[in-house]
Amino acid sequence: MEYQAKYITEDIKLSCYEDKFFKSDVMFGQHMLIWFLSGETKIIRPEGSYLFRKGDIFLIPRNQLATIINYPKDGQPHKTVVMHLTTDWLRSFYAKQSVKPFTEDEQGIRHYSGHPLLESCLASLVPYFDMKDLPADLANLKITEAVTILRSIDQGIDNVLANFEEPGKIDLADYMEKNFMFNLPMEKFGYLTGRSLTTFKRDFKKIFATTPQRWLTKKRLDLAHYEFVQKKKKPIDVCYEVGFENLSHFSFAFKKQFGYAPSVLLAGEV
């Protein structure tokens, strides 16, 4: 995979994937505002899947789990302008505002495609990626502009951007049932459920009577079986959507679990 990135600062970048595809299970530590220049991205979240293409603008809130699958499209690479809205920057910004945010139960992806002011703000960044000597305080000015526009077009955005709480201890069983398809380190699952790694493993064993890895593997394979039977999806698509990193490992694990390969199931020979 050939990946290239150009930076105005570490918080504003032009991201480009030239190769066939890139997949990652991630938890973003900061809010990310993204504008698509070319290519295609499929984002899988507990509430469903999203497909983004050229011209789309969206914001992914921090501390949200997602599977990101990037593709080239129509002969063009996957290319995006990405703006990180960091907690430190937002704290400073909102210290000057009279805002009392409330915590939303679900902070899903927020869509802003087709808004001329926001698109103009992000498009104005592109020429700067090829400049060596940048105007002082450019990044701060552009991030301020973007956040100001977001606040004018999205009445609920302050509840996302001005919420600086860290994950508290939550219902472990409910969280894992909703997020098992994301292939993250156990430390991340612990953090997102408000637990240390040791406490996470201990609580998990009490609830599920098995180890996290064994439980996750079975849940992912059961979901894959359902996707094959009910939706007739391709193995390559199911593999990545349920949390596996490569097709060969997925096929091996699937056959070990069920006694037959995905191709046999799809052919109706079971």
Rank of each mutant, 00 (worst) to 15 (best):
M1K: 14
Q4V: 05
Q4E: 14
A5W: 04
K13D: 13
S15C: 05
C16W: 01
E18V: 02
D19G: 11
F22V: 09
K23S: 11
K23R: 13
S24Q: 15
V26T: 12
M27F: 03
G29F: 07
G29S: 09
Q30K: 15
H31E: 09
H31L: 03
W35N: 15
W35Y: 15
S38H: 03
E40N: 13
R45S: 05
G48M: 00
S49E: 13
S49V: 02
Y50L: 12
L51C: 15
L51P: 00
R53M: 08
I57T: 08
I57A: 01
F58T: 04
I60H: 02
I60C: 02
P61A: 06
N63F: 07
N63K: 12
L65I: 10
I68E: 11
I68C: 05
P72T: 01
G75I: 09
G75Y: 09
P77K: 01
H78K: 07
K79G: 01
K79Y: 00
T80Y: 04
T80F: 10
M83V: 14
M83P: 01
M83I: 13
H84C: 04
L85W: 03
L85E: 07
T86K: 07
D88W: 02
F93K: 11
Y94I: 09
A95N: 11
K96Y: 07
P101Q: 04
D105A: 10
E106I: 05
E106R: 08
Q107D: 15
H111N: 10
Y112L: 10
G114W: 03
P116M: 02
L117G: 03
L118A: 02
L118C: 05
E119A: 13
S120T: 14
L122I: 12
L125C: 03
Y128E: 03
D130A: 14
D130N: 07
D130K: 04
D130F: 03
D130E: 09
M131N: 12
K132W: 00
L134F: 06
A139M: 06
N140G: 12
N140D: 13
K142A: 05
I143C: 04
T144M: 06
V147Q: 13
V147L: 06
D154P: 07
Q155H: 09
I157N: 03
I157R: 08
V160T: 14
N163Q: 10
F164G: 05
K169C: 13
I170V: 12
D174P: 01
D174Q: 11
M176Y: 11
N179H: 14
F180P: 09
F180T: 06
N183D: 07
L184S: 13
P185H: 04
G190S: 06
T193P: 09
R195M: 15
R195G: 14
R202P: 00
F204G: 02
F204D: 01
K205Y: 12
K205Q: 11
L216I: 13
L216R: 15
T217P: 00
T217Q: 15
L221Y: 07
D222G: 02
D222Q: 14
E227H: 04
F228E: 03
Q230E: 10
K232C: 08
K232D: 07
K232F: 03
I236W: 08
D237K: 07
V238F: 00
V238L: 03
C239F: 03
V242G: 00
G243R: 04
G243H: 09
G243K: 05
F244M: 12
F244G: 08
L247G: 02
F252R: 14
F254H: 06
K255G: 12
Q257I: 00
F258W: 08
G259C: 08
Y260H: 09
L265I: 13
A267Y: 02
